[in-house]
Design a protein around this nucleic acid. Structure first.
Lengths: 303, 303
DNA sequence: CCTTTATGTTGATTAAATATCACCAAGAGA
DNA sequence: TCTCTTGGTGATATTTAATCAACATAAAGG
């Protein structure tokens, strides 16, 4: 079977994406508002057209094959993009206010930069950004969506998982007279280290072949935002997320040092407390964040 | 109209994307293999469902509206992604060899990095990379696709426009004792400048408010690859494309200095000389490059 | 061990979406 | 003006997709 734009079985792909997300035809059918038989047929048709099995049909349970996973990912991303495209031309979603909230550290680290980009893409949407506490249980009424780090608590509902931090060491170029590009992890320990309350140095060192050891504390700060500020000011080396320091890396305020990046244990989430309907504006914002933060394209994106 | 995954009019969107690309229903119909009436209906349906005009219908000519352009872009990207997804699970496209060619400077600057990423995503596909001359007129037979800079000449056929360089000044941190992040464009002129045969400094300076002036030549090199090497070695400031120095920026070998980036006048293209059929492997490679280089997501992507 | 309740699959049928054909009105160009 | 091309549209035909109902199989409960 030839694969071209005109022969892509779009509806079958959508059905498959939903089925793949649930691994359960009846639930997928419910989401799509059709019967399970219809979904079964669509998935079958897609498998035949591609000439490959997308599900392992062990007994009467579905499991994605390797190829199925790959395709589901691609189709899911594509559908997200189509959704964003449709929303971005919907008059109802533009022109109006969107009230967002986040802990100050998140706002300062990356959310404001994202909001700036979003605003450039959709200048008709006015955004108000409020502060909340990191572990705040409930949100004021006027806040439509909020960003939090770690599983959201209490009555909040996850709209979207945004991204999982990947942290690696960064420092000011002023701290590294030699330019210090491919600095070895071990020689890092000669430099002053900046810690925040997440205490990630031990884990990072372990992941870079520097077995369990005491790390001397040179500077403690509360959160990553202050850690980045401290690193920028040449106080020492800080373990920072790649997204949070991207602009600093771009303009040379900070330099990424060697070693592998390590994934954080928790994710950032976009959450809401609204009972049912979230506005088209908020939906558009969610799609935008998802694309800019989560995706980037599977592998590392360029610059 | 509510916009959700289940209500997206996928087929209508595809028809619209083709129509938008041609701004011509009959040609779009030809590409889709249907009659123009069918396309007309699909586009109409989409406009009604979204509640917005996608085309200006002046007389009997079609022009995209602002919203139409935006949507067409999004839908086109999404369809590319779906195509890549479908290809990536197609047994015929995997397992086999793909012969690629490029001028050495392009290979060294960014193509090898892309091939590395591609190989990680699709380890089944073996790639052979050959050298060609930048202005080579014909390709050896065994080469299936090639990359070139500037409009391809002679019997080559463009498969895809890849990206247009955006160049800005970079230098080794060793050259900038102060860390020199937000260095003013004017103070740049105090540093030694590296030129390649494209002679971009004049244009860049003009675009950064430094009117027409003589720029002293400190070092001339043949192509951008050598320019980047020279900058890396601390010979001076070079105007480099963001993609070509992304890894150097990441690991601190180079630092991006201030000022606006400027678009090059020519693009990089993926071309072929094959009469008709390009292999599914090559198609997959084309989709991959297109996504990683061209898109990135409209605005600047994150690191 | 048998029963119950899930699962996904499939043939026949019905319903809906989509394409076609033929024709129209309107603008472009000679 | 005459001609050619554009896109739009009503009626019709075709193709595609969903439903319904029955079925096979596997897991869970008694």
């Amino acid at each position: 079977m030839e694969i071209s734009r005109r022969s892509l079985p779009l509806n079958a792909m959508r059905a498959f994406e939903v089925a793949a997300r649930h691994c359960h035809l009846r639930r997928a059918a419910a989401e799509l508002g059709v019967t399970h038989g219809a979904v079964s047929r669509q998935v079958r048709q897609l498998e035949e057209q591609l000439g490959i099995d997308l599900f392992d049909r062990g007994g009467n349970r579905l499991t994605l094959t390797q190829e199925g996973k790959r395709l589901a990912q691609a189709v899911g991303d594509a559908l997200d993009q189509l959704t964003e495209g449709a929303l971005s031309v919907d008059p109802a979603s533009l022109s109006g206010e969107l009230v967002v909230a986040a802990p100050p550290s998140i706002s300062a680290c990356w959310l404001l930069a994202m909001i700036g980009d979003f605003n450039r893409s959709y200048p008709e949407i006015e955004i108000r950004l409020d502060n909340i506490q990191p572990m705040q249980r409930e949100l004021p009424n006027e806040i439509e969506v909020a960003v939090c780090f770690g599983e959201p608590i209490a009555p909040k509902k996850v709209i979207r998982e945004l991204f999982r931090e990947k942290y690696g060491p960064v420092a000011s170029p002023a701290l590294l007279p030699g330019g210090g590009g491919g600095l070895e992890p071990s020689s890092l320990l000669q430099l002053p280290l900046i810690h925040d309350r997440h205490g990630r140095w031990t884990r990072w060192l372990a992941n870079n072949g520097l077995g369990p050891r005491e790390v001397s504390a040179n500077l403690y700060v509360q959160d990553s935002y202050l850690g980045i500020c401290a690193a920028r000011d040449g106080c020492g080396v800080f373990l920072a997320d790649r997204i949070e320091v991207s602009s600093d890396l771009r303009n040379g305020n900070l330099i990424a040092l060697g070693g592998q990046t390590v994934e954080a244990q928790h994710s950032h989430y976009l959450v809401t407390e609204q009972p049912e309907v979230i506005s088209a504006r908020a939906q558009l914002f969610a799609e935008y964040l998802g694309r800019e933060l989560g995706g980037g394209g599977g592998s590392d994106s360029v610059l």
